[in-house]
Amino acid sequence: MKIVVLNGSPDSRRFELDCYLAELEGLLETRGHVVKSFELRAMNIGHCTGCWGCWVKTPGECVIRDDSQKVCRAAINSDLLLFASPVIMGFTSAVLKKISDRLIPLLHPYFEIDRGEIHHRKRYERYPAVGLLLERATDTDEEDLELIRDIYARMALDFKSELKFTGLTGNPAEEAADALDRL
């Protein structure tokens, strides 16, 4: 399976998530998966300005030319999109949120009704499964984790997909690799 990892660690002085991802990516590759990892903090990615250019000017592509195009291209062509982040103030990092907002060119402005709710329509034929990998902070509790999961599950729904995996860096990387293997 093609796996795209979005490493949302904001700071190279924090090692835990970086180390964990390096180990996990190694394990996944030995098991035959193709892993492409983006270290978001080192990339040139601006924030969404809400201009809708990606839907009404250059359909499917953001009008801001930066590294987000690479991420969008890799993401839509993957089987699994893994959002990885330390928990900061009860949610994933701002640097990860920035790219999440920049993924909407992958959707279409038109609407559809899905499970009785309004959502946008697909632009592409298929969308990757969504995974979530979190590094707890000292103030992270179970409620925080549940909330983050719930938010990413809804986001997955909006991206025509499903949250198929949630992991914590406190657990062994083999466990995560096993779980991802089973998808």
Binding site: H47, I88, L103, D139
Partner: peptide, 23 residues
């Protein structure tokens, strides 16, 4: 603020992170 991909826009999260010292 508006909902952005089922949560807050980037600038809001950025602000929230800057408020950590006030917890």
């Amino acid at each position: 603020f508006p909902l952005y991909t089922d949560c807050m826009p980037w600038a809001v999260k950025n602000f929230i992170e800057a408020l950590a010292p006030f917890c």
